[in-house]
Design a protein around this nucleic acid. Structure first.
Length: 425
RNA sequence: GGAGAGAUGGCCGAGUCGGUUGAAGGCGGUCGCCUGCUAAGCGAUUACAUGGGCGAAUACCUGUGUCGCGGGUUCGAAUCCCGCUCUCUCCGCCA
């Protein structure tokens, strides 16, 4: 959420932002309500001020003097007025808040201007897509043939877009989780967190999933609970309503979690395979840092995520999302896209974002250095990486002509020595 | 699930016949003194949010709100009443 004062003082900048992000919000209406709210507030505060002064006077006077009685009668009237004004103010605040919560973050100045995904800018490539002397198969064909992925039974037991991993497939999933957690903890200095997979609506509001994207989340009926769409939600909200000490920053967490997304309305494309499931695993990186450090921390975070792909020897590219493609809460985002031979294209496998103070303001996460005033911290996060898509990438990139799949060297210690997946009966 | 206790400032912790309590005291922080250095000691200072005065300002002045959350009683509520949430203890159940 943006600073109301910033909106008041820079309405044009905010309007430009909304236009660049292709979002329609009547900012003039907002400014009008805000002005009205401040006027009413001034009025009610004045009334309260007199009431406070008179009440104190009453306390010093004789209780049953005629003068006191008159004052009490007067204050009774003021009390009614105050109550009426308070109700009006409450309604105005509700409107203000409702608008404020759906205004997206302001893109960083280095974010490319554009409306759609085609306008994103590729920053760099790593690794070379392998030349196959046969037609590479899709990961779902490989997975089913190898008997390590079972989409059919996933549908029977849960529904469309659920899958069973089996045998070495299940081991591979688990191995990747451990490999990534170890890497980020031991070599990149993150603190490991194992979060709740269910959060309340306050947490969803804090990171920006609510109120705008309620449809994309799984809500548990008749409760205030949501299945987490990413570990970002519980982990960022760890410090909700806290004032952190400046010395503790930056705070870097890495968390494994299952992620649950209903993705309503996204049906049609990419419904096959592991790319778009209702439940998937992810290792997530989350950072809390000082405002002046968030730009450099985003670069570091992205590198930490890239390192995973490098160690797995998976070709990828880094893309800077344009203003129109940027997520709601993000000021800047780098997507890591891994090469998938079965698709013949690069597919998002990690999204690394700097949210500046947008989430911090919503979730009220601040820090204080020395004797200074508390100020909002900056939050960042990125996948390090999405596990299911990594499995897909490994299957497709490491496949052999006979339908078997080699496994990346770095995973061998995590796989009980298994180096290759062959068809299992 | 049943019974009981509790929720106060960055932290700990006082505060019931409702009225200089925004809140004692302590810790921590900051500044100063002392000191060869450190420790100890002494003194001072130290909530957050927000409206307005003005603004470049997190500077200054002033108002308002905030003692878990929401409502009620009252001229006036941290203090009284009601509802909710959370925490702790005991019992039950369970991985």
């Amino acid at each position: 959420m943006l600073d109301v004062k910033f909106i008041r003082n820079n309405p044009e900048a905010v309007k430009n932002t909304l236009a660049a992000r292709v979002v329609e919000i009547d900012l003039d209406e907002f400014l009008r309500i805000d002005k009205l709210w401040r006027e009413k507030l001034a009025k009610v505060e004045q009334l309260r001020s007199t009431r406070n002064a008179v009440s104190e006077k009453i306390s010093r006077q004789k209780k049953d003097s005629p003068e006191t009685k008159e004052l009490i009668l007067e204050m009774r009237k003021i009390g009614v007025q105050i109550k009426e004004l308070e109700e009006e103010i409450r309604q105005l605040e509700e409107k203000i808040q409702a608008i404020l919560l759906v205004i997206p973050n302001i893109p960083h100045e280095t974010v490319p201007i554009g409306e759609r995904a085609e306008d994103n800018v590729v920053l760099r490539y790593w690794g070379k897509p392998r030349n196959f002397d046969f037609k590479p198969k899709s990961h779902w064909d490989l997975g089913e043939a190898l008997n390590i992925l079972d989409f059919e039974r996933g549908s029977k037991v849960a529904g469309a877009r659920f899958v069973f991993y089996k045998g070495v497939g299940a081991q591979l999933e688990r191995a990747l989780i451990n490999f990534m957690l170890n890497l980020h903890v031991k070599e990149h200095g993150y603190v490991e967190i194992f979060p709740p997979f269910i959060v309340n609506s306050e947490s969803m509001l804090g990171t920006g999933q609510l109120p705008k994207f309620a449809q994309e989340a799984f809500k548990i009926e008749d409760t205030n609970y949501f299945l987490i769409p990413t570990a970002e939600v519980p982990v960022t909200n760890i410090h909700r309503d806290e004032i952190l000490s400046g010395e503790s920053l930056p705070i870097c967490y890495v968390a494994y979690s299952a992620c649950f997304r209903s993705e309503a309305g996204a049906a049609g494309r990419e419904t096959r395979g592991l790319i778009r499931q209702h439940q998937f695993n992810k290792v997530e990186l989350v950072k809390f840092c000082r405002p002046e450090e968030s730009n450099i921390e985003l670069e570091k975070l992205t590198q930490d995520a890239e390192r995973v792909l490098q160690l797995l020897a998976l070709p990828y590219r880094v893309v800077s999302l344009c203003t129109g493609d940027l997520g709601f809460s993000a000021a800047k985002t780098y997507d890591l896209e891994v090469w998938l031979p079965g698709y013949g294209e690069y597919k998002e496998i990690s999204s690394c974002s700097n949210f500046t103070d947008f989430q911090a303001r919503r979730a009220n996460i601040r820090f204080r250095s020395g004797k200074g005033k508390p100020q909002f911290i900056h939050t960042l996060n990125g996948s390090g990486l999405a596990i299911g898509r990594t499995v897909a990438a490994i299957l497709e990139n490491y496949q052999e002509s006979d339908g078997s799949v080699r496994l990346p060297e770095v995973l061998v210690p995590y796989l009980n020595g298994v180096r290759k997946i062959k068809e299992e009966k």
